[in-house]
Amino acid sequence: MLGGSNVASAGGTEASDATSPHRVVIDAKELDLVFDTADGRVHALANVDLTVREGEFVSFIGPSGCGKTTLLRVIADLEQATGGSITVGGVSPADARAARLYGYVFQAAALLPWRNVLDNVTLPLEIFGVSKEERLERAARNLDLVNLTGFEKKFPWQLSGGMQQRASIARALAYDPQLLLMDEPFGALDEIVRDKLNVQLLKLWAETAKTVIFVTHSIPEAVFLSTKIVVMSPRPGRIIDVIECDLPRDRTLEIRESSRFLEIAHRVREGLRAGHSYDD
């Protein structure tokens, strides 16, 4: 059911040549993860197969406990699978992490409160031993990308939630990783801010041609952003449907009223319902 990711991108301008074989960035086969907790064994991921190709925008959607965040954390080598195989960028997740192949954006902005915006964005570069000049140059470029130029000297508490999250995206992009892993990055924000950031994220994705994996539990957000939607279901955490989202890449918020958008959203909703995800 997976594999082919021939994203039909009618309006696409770059990195979207549907006929060229895009490199596989993530390849997971029969992935299993069992946690041994105090309350017994939790089957967080069961038999997960997933292929993500370069330049795709893939959303994981599902209710709490469906393993979407766990899967993201396995890709990031923050958790280790207990069965099956997975490669990230052609190597093991551990090697991918060591090679700084990905940038991770958490639900909370997780900026260090004692560092201003600039110093937060340059923190990963500092850790990688990048020279000061280059740090500043890259930070300036990425802060511009998220429209935070002029806020370099502000401390996190002086920014709104949306601005904090944009700063954390700039931080994840600062070292130009080919893969961006986002764990409900806009989940804590109000809908108006979220819409705005979604539009900005699409623009950013088009400009940088990154591969994005995006965890969410919002159907409209998933449909609006993605080229591929992975529908997941809990107990055990598994993939129940993979939906190609073939809306034109050049999307505006108005697309959410189009019939194609509603059709895809409907299919996602059906998938979630089929997984009996909300029968608790």
């Binding site: 990031a76 080598d77 923050l78 992490r97 060591a98 700084r100 990905y102 940038g103 991770y104 958490f106 909370a108 997780a110 260090l112 923190l123 990963p124 500092e126 850790i127 990688f128």
Partner: peptide, 19 residues
């Protein structure tokens, strides 16, 4: 979250300590 973040950057224990 912050500890995980340092991990995603493959920071050494010394880097995690000082930063």
């Amino acid at each position: 979250l912050h500890v995980d973040l340092m991990r995603t950057w493959d920071a050494t224990p010394a880097q995690t300590f000082w930063r």
